[in-house]
Design a protein around this nucleic acid. Structure first.
Ligand SMILES: [Mn+2]
Ligand SMILES: [Mn+2]
Ligand SMILES: [Mn+2]
Ligand SMILES: [Mn+2]
Lengths: 216, 216
DNA sequence: TAAAATTTTTAGACTAATCTAAAATTTACA
DNA sequence: TGTAAATTTTAGATTAGTCTAAAAATTTTA
């Protein structure tokens, strides 16, 4: 169908447009660890195949066809991550690189069976929603823990930093998906939040609170 | 480590040497659906990397390093096939093409966990032995059902034709792995064998009997 | 054992994806 | 508003893997 590389470009563009409302040539290059000149070449090719809308110097958007491909890859990535954690007992910080390979396994039937085998999970190990087999994805209503006011309570639903070091840190301090936290104090002078969970009191930096997403 | 293509060449050479004691340039080209000229190029590259022993016009053999890579790919192929049949409930004639892709997923830890998840299976769905994580593989003692004499009994252990049509036929007549069969009559004039299994009498052609492997 | 047939290798070209360096265009701001 | 800075595109090369056509080597066979 499409090459491994084309799939990665489409997924990358999708993710950039999720956050930035803009997917620039340089941003795509950075996210794929390649060069802007290479990106321009590929954008022409993807436009030729009607997977993106592209005009020189004007940035890109995904066509419905391109969006469908991107969501198919994201669906596979997240279902495989769920499998690795739920069935093979990997930790949530260990699965991303394996899923980067597994997401390109072409069979749609395989991924549908895998989904059934795991009883139709709705979220991946990092709290991200899993698109269904029609490419439909539930928008999540989330806010950073940083936005919580004093004495407010919330449930950790996802993370916005997927780096292994951040995930390992959260694991260590036991701030994982599903945990309820209460902001017991906000200290202005040292930029930290005091949160309480499981009757334990923790101090987390504003940087950590920014990347910890709370269900609305 | 090695490219997808290099891995396929090594696996192909391994399988050819299993059967033929010779892996010719043309045989490799046929098995990989490519051209002899392309094979020669790749053989030079694999020799450069010390994965095969190669001298112009003299054919090839695998070095210990090449053998190890080949067995690693075969291990992954067979474990994934077992997963697809045992856990995802695919039929034995449906899994080969998916395994051709999955065998190139690089993580060794992933395949070891998958093996553990399935309780260390010894054989894939077609009766082929699964190499262990050290690349050791048990040699199977098998003979074609065709070699059975009248009134002799044997257990079906594997197949030597892996085509979907052959596997579907065996499924239909219920001659599957593990079944005990007894040769009740050998008819010289129409080239068929009469076999009895589960108190049912079946007639199978010599071609089918040739590809049905019996444990010794 | 020499010609014929077959197999294998070489030569030269093509595609997908990448790169560096330079040119073109857009954006920022003095 | 015009110059400087940043971004993006083009030009020209490179690498892995593939191809066809032709040459070289081996094997078969008469
Ligand atoms: Mn991931
Ligand atoms: Mn994830
Ligand atoms: Mn197979
Ligand atoms: Mn098999």
């Amino acid at each position: 169908m499409h090459t491994y590389t084309e799939e990665n470009y489409l997924k990358s563009i999708y993710h950039l447009l999720e956050q930035n409302e803009q997917a620039s040539t340089n941003d795509i290059a950075a996210s794929l660890k390649t060069r802007a000149a290479s990106v321009t070449d590929m954008l022409k090719k993807l436009a030729e195949k009607k997977l993106i809308n592209y005009a020189r110097y004007q940035g890109v958007s995904l066509t419905p066809a391109g969006q469908k491909v991107a969501l198919g890859i994201i669906r596979k990535h997240r279902l495989w991550e769920h499998f690795l954690v739920d069935k093979l007992k990997f930790k949530w910080d260990e699965v991303h690189d394996m899923a980067e390979e597994l997401e390109h396994i072409s069979s749609v039937e395989l991924i549908n069976r895998l989904e059934q085998f795991m009883d139709y999970p709705q979220f991946d190990p990092h709290g991200d929603p899993i698109p269904n087999s029609n490419g439909e994805i539930k928008a999540q209503l989330l806010q950073p823990a940083l936005a919580l006011t004093q004495h407010q309570t919330g449930v950790i639903a996802a993370v916005s930093d997927h780096s292994a070091s951040f995930l390992q840190y959260l694991e260590k301090i036991q701030l994982t998906i599903g945990k309820e936290i209460k902001v017991t104090e906000i200290t202005d002078y040292d930029l930290c939040l005091e949160v309480t969970t499981d009757n334990k009191v923790l101090n987390i930096s504003r940087e950590v609170a920014k990347n910890l997403l709370i269900a609305l």
